[in-house]
Simulated scan of single mutants.
Amino acid sequence: MSLDSHPTTPATGPDPLRFDGPDAFARWRRAISEAFVPLDAHPIGGGAPSFHGSLHCAALGSAMQLSEVSGTHVRVRRTAETIRKADPGFVKFGMQVSGNGILRQGDHEAPLSPGDFAVYDTRVPYELHFADDFTMFVVMLPRDALKISSGVLDAVVGRRIRGHDGVGALISPFLMQLRHNLQNGTLPSTPMFEDAVADLLSAAFDETAPPLRERSGPTLLASAKTFIDHHLSDPDLNTVMVATAHHISARYLQKLFETDGRTVASWIRSRRLDKCRRDLADPRLTQETIRTICARYGFLDTAHFSRLFKDTFGQSPSSFRGHALTETHPRPPEHTYI
């Protein structure tokens, strides 16, 4: 179960918190609310009177946290409302230790059996459903600690990774060893180990991501070009901005544009120049200065714009404007009187 926390949660310590007795669920839910960001927890099928559970967390390095959570007959939801209350931007890597669970996030549903694990993002609503006794081990780390693009993360969240196949067969034993370290209080303290865990999980995410990005390439390229046209006035428009808006890496965005024989920067520049040329030739805009027109499309340095314009179109902006407007409104022929 993903319990969104800060590394200094009160649940961090050598011993787990245990919850038994008639008010166990209320205390467990209250402990979660105090130790983690708000979550919406409810018992399933009137299970509150018989609820029993535990919570144990410990920090690994400066930003990563390990947690083991157990309970029974419970549904936990991360809703839009709870996200608004606190959004720490963590990603969770949850492994089912015992019992069975179901994780739902976005359009994906992951049925989890012991040894299976799934990735989920605390910035997006999700739901975890446990119909019986369960134990789950969770590695929580900041989104920025992962060395993967947002596109890879979006493709992986909410999907089951089988613990006995492929990359899961490599990761599951490693997570189980981390769980034993948590239980025994023997977690390594070196920052290098924290980085190694982040690298390993990043590799697992990247290996697990379905090849959706390549198939959606033409659609992404068209969307990126539309985004650029809508933001030409922003002088800070660049490759990173466009890639971030589309949840893909800057490198992948460059590859998409290379299919057209261009770079992202050259496309932005050509679109800006085309828009400026259009406005310079528009007779309705004769009252606007060249400085005003080029600034409208992100060129704040008029001299730089003039050089680019002449290099591209073979004449200065003022010469182009004069010829274009003359052709649009030619002078009337002179009359000859006899």
Rank of each mutant, 00 (worst) to 15 (best):
G314A: 11
V240W: 02
E127N: 10
R104Y: 07
I161M: 15
L182C: 12
G298I: 10
L178H: 03
G322A: 14
A198C: 03
R213D: 07
D206K: 02
D15Q: 08
M241E: 05
F305G: 01
A86M: 10
N100K: 15
I161A: 12
S33K: 10
R27N: 10
G89D: 14
F130L: 01
V91D: 05
R291F: 14
R123Y: 09
H247K: 00
K255A: 12
V138E: 00
R27E: 14
F174R: 03
M140C: 15
M140V: 15
A324F: 10
L153E: 02
D144A: 01
F299Y: 13
A131P: 08
V97G: 07
T122I: 12
P10Q: 13
S223M: 07
H335A: 15
A196V: 01
P14G: 03
R272T: 13
P22H: 11
D206W: 00
T289I: 00
N100G: 12
F130K: 01
C294S: 15
E109N: 06
R321A: 03
T286H: 09
A63L: 05
L201Q: 00
F130M: 04
C276R: 05
F90L: 12
R215L: 07
S54Y: 09
E109A: 08
V157T: 07
G322M: 13
S306E: 14
P330I: 09
L325K: 04
L103F: 00
E109G: 04
G166T: 00
V97D: 09
A303R: 05
M176G: 05
D279K: 10
T259C: 14
